[in-house]
């Protein structure tokens, strides 16, 4: 039996092409348990693709991805089981609009975790409380603000008791005044010790919460270091130029 990996996520030599377009050009990348890693980089650099490869929403072209030491690029890998252990939060929230907030949170618990209805509802309500939305149990997504919808989406992912959470620009679709409430929930998760991988343009959040910041450009990891260093004193010219653009 293979020695269990020390990493929650371990990406080796990951390549991903869409037809002729090579989007990921050999990514090596790790996340330790309990670590918060922020991924930054210009539009089109492959950040979303990397995230989506990690839970196999995209099929990697080559390379390997180990989640808790288990190779998920293996053809026999249990992809559904894997995904249920990785919470994913999307830029566009992607709540189920035809279901109430509580039903959004219980659906996968019932179908995938096979929990009893009673237990699923208990878990759902506990997680809604965690994101500060105990008063919206029966609301429908269309009646919530963007910030509230994103917090429901986070609670939905948390209801599966994931080992780690991935966020793909969770605040980019929000009005500026709603960004804070979502980042607040994420900060809470980080202090609780959740393993997190966050694609974001919120440099303030990265600086404050991340253990490590990864800068990607053109399908490769250009550099990675603790936030203070990468954001204030980047080693590479490309990183410096990017940071000047966003600041």
């Amino acid at each position: 039996m293979e020695q269990a990996s020390a990493y929650a996520i371990e990406v080796r030599e990951l390549h991903k092409s869409f037809g002729d377009l090579e989007v990921l050009k050999g990514i090596d990348f790790t996340v330790a348990p309990g670590e918060v890693v922020c991924v930054i980089g210009p539009s089109g650099s492959g950040k979303s693709t990397l995230l989506r490869c990690v839970n196999r929403l995209e099929e990697p072209t080559s390379g390997s991805i180990l989640i808790d030491g288990e190779d998920i690029t293996d053809p026999d890998a249990d992809v559904d089981g894997l995904r249920s252990r990785i919470g994913m939060v999307f830029q566009q929230f992607n709540l189920f609009p035809h279901l109430s907030v509580t039903r959004n949170l219980t659906l996968a618990q019932l179908r995938v975790r096979k929990r009893s209805k009673r237990e699923a509802i208990e878990v759902a309500h506990a997680n809604l409380e965690r994101v500060g939305l105990s008063d919206k149990l029966d609301a429908y997504p269309a009646h919530l603000s963007g910030g509230q919808q994103q917090r429901v989406a986070i609670a939905r992912a948390l209801s599966m008791d994931p080992d780690m959470m991935m966020f793909d620009e969770p605040t980019s679709a929000l009005d500026p005044e709603l960004v804070g409430e979502v980042l607040g929930v994420m900060r809470l998760l980080a202090t609780e010790g959740m393993t997190m991988m966050v694609v974001t343009h919120e440099m303030g959040f990265a600086k404050e919460v991340a253990d490590r910041v990864v800068f990607m450009d053109d399908g490769i990891v250009v550099e990675e270091s603790p936030p203070q260093q990468l954001l204030q004193d980047p080693r590479h010219e490309r990183t410096r130029r990017f940071l000047q653009l966003v600041n």
């Binding site: 995904r83 999307f90 992607n94 996968a108 179908r111 995938v112």
Partner: peptide
């Protein structure tokens, strides 16, 4: 139905049929 709906459901571990 927007593509994100299938992705959200799959990312929660639901099978394609579910």
């Amino acid at each position: 139905v927007p593509k994100g709906q299938m992705e959200a459901a799959r990312s929660l571990g639901m099978s394609k049929t579910q």
